[in-house]
Design a protein around this nucleic acid. Structure first.
Lengths: 358, 358
DNA sequence: CGCTATGTTGAGACCGGTCTCATTCGCTTG
DNA sequence: CAAGCGAATGAGACCGGTCTCAACATAGCG
């Protein structure tokens, strides 16, 4: 069936037209069903296309329609179940609308993100979904609008940018998680995040690069203060990216003169490393330390002990982001307002009473 | 800086050429640094490009170079940590070589996979990495070669296809896991896989659609037979995709007249559902049942009990697949032979002695 | 001083589609 | 029966790059 020669040159409309005995323009019309074509010609052209196994070159098509039927997605780390699930939501939604997805991973590095935006724009994606690594350095995000393409922010918002963001309304649940800890008698509550800051420790003035972390902290600090507890800078830690760094932060926390009796982990990757460190130190949860993780995955109910978590509707965040982008691409109304999905506190067994000091 | 008018029309080489006072051809040469251009002109053109903030249209470039600097990846489910990690390996490797990645998810559905191949080929990706949903229905995989593009198979092989595959050499470890179970005294060992078969139960004649499952089974059956145990069809179960189906399979297994005393889960998604079902039934691992999971993730060491697993170098599989593809694209030698990466059995606490029958 | 080798440059074809415009044809209508 | 109209079709421009080829300039050489 397939001759060795086939593989080189692709079949074009011109080939189909020649075979059907019509002009290129007519063949294109019959194939793309636009304009007027007589039934007989249409059939003849379609038959020719069939015989030649014609496949349109989407690149060429994109070039003069200006549309590529592709959306770009830029995230910090697909390996993180959070983005994996969101990606799935985006991907499913996009596919249903006939769009494809180009994924770029930034490792939460702004430089990489800048390159990614450039590349995707150069490739003429129709729109972009970005989980920005920084809400400060956002010049490249502006390029998207300047190129006339819609942008939807995932999980994080950026002030002063004409882009809709889809976020999880995490502060209330962060507050609820903290309240649960407070109710159990904890007052020394630590928070560990992967976010990189410029070596600064927490204070009211500290502005964070990532809104989703800011929100977590706002919820936690709010709950603390409502019980008259002033957040302690030594218990709020950033820079826990990678196993080693997380480990040393946790070690550091445990070696404090007045160590925390509870830890909140900003995401599941950190949570795993924190738990592993605790385990290595022979500390039991919740016997020696209480623990809460942001994000819920199926394994969180199967750990020892099952983890109390702040569950986020991540898949739906992806779906919402893609839906808004797709609506904008279709010229449909989309509310033009940031979307907020609710998070919920799921109580399991990793929160317990404060241990009696030895 | 940015006028409202900017956003519509993109700056082209022609614009840059006009501004620099040279021809389009010369401007293109200066920008793409090919051909010969005098230093003065080069500088002038580059300055003009800078001022106009010129960005090349990659679509146009791709169209006549025939290269898109993009590779397509088709997997069953990115949500599955297995593919998530492999994707990360592919993505990292591709990016380092200046390639982008288009990802399509098939939900292990062959029809979707066929469409995906078509779409990606139409988009003129330079090469494809596919984890084929079926080793029987492979006509569409042939298209890739017919279109003159390299194809690398991920995790699964397909007979009679001119494509290199990158796999994990899983049979030996599957055998070792089974042997560990046998050593602990188990003889009723069940295997649960998500693979869809045509309603058939296991027999020697049953041919499976996915080689990685075939290999797991080969290792298991081999170990069993070497101890004189004939595999029992009622203990080898397929179709465990989705929580409900997995649950009913496990329930079914447990309700057998002679139920298994150990279960091997073909991947982490299934493992989670199996464990949850056991937990709901009030069964303890390894007290009541021993358990082994294929794939290792950080949480597997933190469950109750820590899981004995067959660890696979998944990230490296992704890296290897991308590396081979990239080498073929660069016209470099790549060995042209399937790559096999080793798996290892990691003993933790989910395997114990056979419980004494009540 | 004439001739060739080398380096620069511009004009324009080309990739494979889409789309505008002019032309031709058949049919209706006064 | 001629004018008028819409449908069908072909020719060719266009998208924004790459690349070939010819023209031209300068320099080196005998």
């Amino acid at each position: 069936m397939v001759e060795p020669g086939d593989r080189q040159r692709a079949v074009t409309v011109a080939d189909v037209a020649r075979r059907a005995g019509v002009s290129k323009a007519t063949a294109a019309r019959a194939l793309g069903d636009y304009g007027a074509v007589s039934d007989s010609v249409r059939e003849r052209v379609q038959a020719a296309a069939e015989e030649l196994d014609y496949r349109p070159n989407e690149l060429a098509r994109s070039m003069n329609t200006g549309k590529s039927k592709t959306i770009g997605v830029i995230v910090g780390d697909i390996e993180n179940g959070y983005f994996g699930l969101a990606m799935r939501g985006i991907s499913d939604t996009a596919k249903a609308a006939g769009y494809d997805v180009i994924l770029i991973n930034t490792s939460e590095d702004v430089r990489t993100e800048i390159d990614a935006v450039r590349v995707l724009l150069d490739k003429r994606v129709d729109g972009l979904i970005v989980a920005p690594a920084s809400s400060f350095e956002t010049g490249h995000l502006r390029w998207v609008g300047e190129a006339g393409r819609p942008l939807v922010l995932l999980d994080r918002r950026v002030a002063g940018l004409e882009a809709v963001s889809v976020e999880v309304d995490i502060a209330p649940s962060a507050g609820a998680a903290t309240a649960a800890l407070l109710d159990a008698g904890h007052t020394r509550i630590a928070f560990v995040s992967a976010l990189q800051t410029e070596g600064e420790t927490y204070s009211d003035r500290l502005e964070l690069r990532v809104s989703s972390v800011t929100d977590r902290l706002a919820g936690i600090v709010g709950a603390l203060r409502s019980r008259g507890i002033e957040p302690s800078a030594e218990l709020i830690r950033f820079g826990a990216h990678g196993r080693d760094r997380t480990r040393s932060i946790v070690e550091d926390l445990l070696d404090l003169a007045d160590p925390p009796t509870a830890i909140l982990a900003s995401d599941s990757l950190i949570a795993l490393d924190v738990l592993r460190t605790l385990k290595d130190r022979g500390l039991r949860v919740p016997g020696d330390l209480s623990f809460v993780m942001f994000d819920d995955f199926e394994w969180a109910a199967l750990t020892d002990p099952p983890l109390t978590v702040v569950a986020q509707p991540i898949y739906d965040v992806g779906v919402a982001a893609a839906t808004i982008l797709l609506r904008r691409l279709a010229g449909l109304p989309h509310g033009d307002v940031d979307a907020h999905l609710p998070a919920t506190l799921v109580l399991r067994d990793s929160v317990g009473p404060v241990p009696v000091r030895a």
